Amino acid sequence: MTGPIWLQWFYVLFWIALISLMAIGGYFMFRKFLKALPKADGKSILDWQEYYIKETLHLWTDEHKALLNDLVSPVPELFRDVAKQTIAGKIGELVVKEEAKQLSQDHIIRGYILATPKRDHKFLIKKLKERNIDISPYQELLK
């Protein structure tokens, strides 16, 4: 005797859900693993991110932090800290490579555009319009 049919379907659906959730979790863990692998220069993407953040940390004012927090507010809370760190790393990279003495709103917006996928740019455009910030200088990056 194999049991009631509803129980058999429950088992099938349970295993499908379990395998699906494990595959999704594995995908995100594998992405993080790839970012932690050292590149040809001996540093990983995460190492460079941390380096750029440390190099520019003294340039961040409360106003800059508030702007970044506002820009990442559409990101789900679970992923928001990771998104902020990634974006801050890209902003730091821009500042270091340009040898800028101050962090500007322009750096923050360009860093956000470069660090995020194109599908997220619509949220950035909406936030910039809410803050009455002209997006025309960034049209080339947004394409």
Rank of each mutant, 00 (worst) to 15 (best):
W48Y: 13
A88D: 02
E130V: 07
L37E: 07
P4V: 10
L78R: 15
H121T: 00
A88E: 06
L94W: 02
K118P: 04
L59E: 01
H107L: 02
L114V: 02
G26E: 09
A40H: 12
K84N: 09
E98S: 09
L7M: 12
W6K: 14
L78Q: 09
K129L: 04
D106M: 09
L124R: 03
Q8E: 14
F30V: 08
I125R: 13
T61D: 08
L94D: 05
I135L: 07
F33A: 14
L78C: 02
L18C: 06
F14N: 02
V95R: 05
Y52P: 00
R80T: 07
K54E: 14
L114N: 03
L124N: 01
K43V: 01
L21S: 13
K118N: 08
K127S: 10
K118L: 12
S20E: 07
M22S: 15
L34C: 09
W15E: 11
D47V: 06
F28I: 06
N132A: 12
E140V: 07
H64C: 08
A40V: 14
V72N: 01
P137I: 00
Y138V: 07
F33Q: 15
P74S: 00
F14L: 12
A36H: 04
S20L: 15
H64K: 05
P4A: 11
R131P: 09
T86C: 07
L21G: 13
L7G: 09
P4R: 10
I24P: 07
F33C: 10
L34R: 13
E63N: 11
R110K: 14
A115D: 06
A115C: 05
L34W: 08
K97I: 06
Y11C: 15
Q102L: 14
N132Q: 15
I135G: 03
I91R: 08
D134N: 15
F123L: 05
F123D: 05
Y138Q: 08
L124M: 01
A40C: 08
G42A: 10
I16H: 02
L7W: 10
I91A: 06
Y51V: 10
L13E: 06
H121D: 00
K122T: 11
F28C: 03
L94C: 05
A36F: 08
K32M: 11
T61W: 06
E93D: 05
I135H: 01
L78T: 09
E98T: 07
K122N: 10
G26R: 00
R110N: 10
A66P: 00
R131V: 03
W60M: 01
R80I: 05
M29T: 08
S136A: 13
R80Y: 01
L59A: 06
L124H: 00
I5D: 12
W6Y: 13
I16A: 08
K39G: 13
P137C: 02
A66F: 02
K122E: 12
I19E: 06
E99Q: 12
W6S: 15
A88Q: 11
M29N: 14
L128Q: 03
F33Y: 15
A115T: 03
M29K: 15
F30I: 08
L114W: 02
P76H: 07
Y112F: 15
S73W: 02
D106Q: 12
A17K: 06
Q8K: 15
I125L: 12
K65D: 14
N69E: 13
T116I: 03
K97C: 07
M29F: 14
